[in-house]
């Protein structure tokens, strides 16, 4: 899988995990663009469950409102752990 980098398009996880997560419901299964890195932290989902978690990259990911809500001309930038993100393969 391609390494995450600014400008890359990503899709967020669709799964609805039991318990704590920091992937807001409105941004689930959505396509956004990586804007910049936002620090390195253990995954909050694991910490909330008392599991050992090694730090991983967190990203500012920008979404078009229309892609999230079906309308709106603004953007929403959400801060998401790399675990929530899958790069979208761009056609060559």
């Amino acid at each position: 899988m391609a390494e995450l980098a600014p400008g890359m398009r990503v899709r967020t996880r669709t799964a609805d995990p039991e318990g704590h997560t920091r992937l807001p419901r409105y941004a689930r299964g959505a396509v956004g663009v990586l804007v910049e890195q936002a620090g390195v932290h253990p995954l909050a989902d694991d910490r909330a469950r008392g599991r050992a978690a090694s730090p991983q990259q967190v990203w500012h990911v920008r979404f078009a409102a229309a892609d999230l809500f079906g309308s709106g001309d603004h953007t929403v930038t959400v801060e998401l752990w790399a675990d929530y993100l899958t790069p979208i393969e761009e056609p060559a």
Partner: peptide, 9 residues
């Protein structure tokens, strides 16, 4: 531009 403080920043 809306910023959601969903992680550690």
């Amino acid at each position: 531009s809306v910023w959601d403080a969903s992680a550690e920043s």
